[in-house]
Write a protein that binds this DNA or RNA. Sequence first.
DNA 1: ATAAATTTTTAGTTTTGTCTAAATTTTTAT
DNA 2: ATAAAAATTTAGACAAAACTAAAAATTTAT
Lengths: 215, 215
Amino acid sequence: MTISEENYLKVIYHLSLVSPKGVNTNAIAGMLDTKASSVTDMLKKLSEKDLVAYQKYQGVTLTENGFRSAKMIVRKHRLWEVFLVEKLGFAWDEVHDIAEELEHIKSETLINKLDEYLDFPAFDPHGDPIPDVNGVMKKVNKLLLSEVEINKEYQCVGVKDSSSEFLKYLDKQKIALGSTFVVKEKESFDDTLLVEVNSKQITISNKIANNLYVQ
Amino acid sequence: MTISEENYLKVIYHLSLVSPKGVNTNAIAGMLDTKASSVTDMLKKLSEKDLVAYQKYQGVTLTENGFRSAKMIVRKHRLWEVFLVEKLGFAWDEVHDIAEELEHIKSETLINKLDEYLDFPAFDPHGDPIPDVNGVMKKVNKLLLSEVEINKEYQCVGVKDSSSEFLKYLDKQKIALGSTFVVKEKESFDDTLLVEVNSKQITISNKIANNLYVQ
DNA sequence: ATAAATTTTTAGTTTTGTCTAAATTTTTAT
DNA sequence: ATAAAAATTTAGACAAAACTAAAAATTTAT
């Protein structure tokens, strides 16, 4: 598989989690920063290789083969992110682009040895689950901070948006995976939250609360 | 720089060490398993980017830019090899192909953090010197085993051929970096050596002796 | 010194992945 | 229900990096 094919598969995988009925050409083009016509071309190729089920104008889904391959790419990406943060000391907002390159390194043995070296982590530095050697992921019953009950205690277990800007904002607020949250008040006008984090009270916008997973 | 351009630079670098006056088109084609005509095309491109000095029919040399870039690729390759052997437990004959892919990962920060994580190694698992962040390599006064004096003690410090077949042969003979050699006899007919290694006497062909560096 | 052999370059194609522009299909809105 | 809008596909082109076959330059051998 070429790097380009792998990137398409990965994007289709991520979009499938949101639209399991079929992923749009335009959505794929948007994620890959390319044109819809290029996407059509690639979907035909992936279809011929039995990695996606593609019907003109009807969107695309992953075949079993494609799903397995996509999960292996995600596995590589997330394991490399763990390596970069845990072993090399990168911050959690610095690792995405490097992992985008590392995920395309071909060796199976490499990734399994890396997995072992990292002690078989189940989650990456952003709280996303890492598929094991068989593609199985730990399932977590997580909620968005925007959906939690008032005055109950929650732990931060992940971020929905892992852009550098958002992660840096969290760093500034001293919010990290494992931080304890208690929502004290919810402003009904704009859904802004008054939250206790690290025994300090801060105000959190609805946009932020919609991108923080807790448990 | 594309992966292909990087591979050409690396090969020209290695061939330059043997033919500093200029590297042949055919030699490059041989190393890259490609055709001479493809090499000509690429040399024109590298020349336009001021990475090589190229004159039709006259071979090619690296410019200062090209030399610097080539050394950085070699640095990456060798640091990744150290990582694979020291941290992930690969054997020294298994790492070359994986490092060929890893050497093309773009981040400067990554490679400098990896260097630090590995404790700034000066040599890779085959005894080849690793350029530091400024491109400087430790120089070693090494000899080929085929050139040493009789009954003097030497240490194995590297291999000239790092093909899997040769390295596996060395494993079988329990020869590794650091092994002590004493040449007891040299057969003048075919230059076969009788060598004491690990306090056992073994016979070593001239071809083998020509691929083992000692000090 | 010149012919033969070798090496290198040129010219013209191919493949992969992209693009633009135009055509077609599907969806949305009246 | 049909026209307008949006999404998608097709057709044709391009750049990168490779190839083959033929031409040109250099080297070698007599």
